[in-house]
Nucleic acid binder design. Sequence first.
DNA 1: CGGTATCCGGAATGATACTG
DNA 2: CAGTATCATTCCGGATACCG
Lengths: 126, 126
Amino acid sequence: MTRTDEKVSDLPRSKRVPYTPESAAQGVQNVIRVLEGRWKLVILFQLFGGRIRRFSDLERAIPGVSQKMLIQQLRQLEADGVVARIVHHQVPPKVEYHLTDWGQSLCPALDALLAWAESAPSEMGS
Amino acid sequence: MTRTDEKVSDLPRSKRVPYTPESAAQGVQNVIRVLEGRWKLVILFQLFGGRIRRFSDLERAIPGVSQKMLIQQLRQLEADGVVARIVHHQVPPKVEYHLTDWGQSLCPALDALLAWAESAPSEMGS
DNA sequence: CGGTATCCGGAATGATACTG
DNA sequence: CAGTATCATTCCGGATACCG
């Protein structure tokens, strides 16, 4: 496994396409930045599978989140093109959120991370 | 693409294995937690491909990092079982870092994230 | 209902100096 | 060389109050 003529899949994209190790790290960091935040992943998992939820739905579905945080993370996800926002101009106001196609396509990558975590050597306890 | 009888791969693991959407989000958050930190991914990309680097190598290879942050993030990655540390008892001191097998196996998952980012609808500018 | 505005505390990061 | 210790700063998230 530590051969020098290693498999291509053992090397990151940075070694296969015109990316330096630094820019590749940068690229992944950008992704992490999109995903990080106390509530973003929770929101995403509430929306995966094409589900559409109102602001108040999310608020109720995510115990402990404040309005400030919920709207903030939703806005960031929206700015990043992961989540879409639909405003129904009516009273009382109604705003719905759902994943963009691109946001939905994040699912397999997240699964890969989950699978990686599950493949841990089983001594992780700290 | 927005059918209701969606493909299995359109749903996260939480819908296929005994995980709730919440615990699935929790699982991914744990992974993010391992990966987050201003310098961790940079360190990882310096180590991918079975590379072994000394502390000072990393310090030089990662412009802008302080000794404090470098050692802190290395220690955390080590505690999480991603990075291994080899101390050569000699003077001057020599300490080498490399990825564990498990850490190396993170590469494909990161590539998936990178691929996802590259598949963006091309309006991301904010 | 779906937000905004403001204040606050703790954690993460950075700068700098010192050490085995 | 490979760290540790201390202090300063910046950032993130929580609490609360108010608004169209």
